[in-house]
Amino acid sequence: MTDHDLDTLFAHARAPTPTDSGAAERFLGRHRARQAQQQGSRQRSLRAGWVGTLLASAAVVAGVTVLRPAPELPASAAYGVYQRAWGDGW
């Protein structure tokens, strides 16, 4: 290939043709679609993570509430029984 041939080739390469523009549009369209798809997927997995954390927290709270030993009764409960054992009048 002569220098003239090379100059001609470079000149064609520097000048964008409608074919090049169409190819670029097709590429960019697919790229944007992929990006949009990946962003939606990330948001869905983020929402799913929050729901899971919330459900786990609720389960922990419920478990602690159910399994925690019942609080002690006040001393008045025992004194009341004692007073009943004495009967009326006191």
């Binding site: 019942a70 006040p74 001393a75 409960a77 025992a78 029984v81 054992a85 004495w86």
Partner: peptide, 13 residues
């Protein structure tokens, strides 16, 4: 008189 109780819950000291 004394009272002996069985109960599901404890009572404060």
């Amino acid at each position: 008189v004394f009272a002996l109780v069985t109960a599901p819950r404890g009572v404060r000291a």
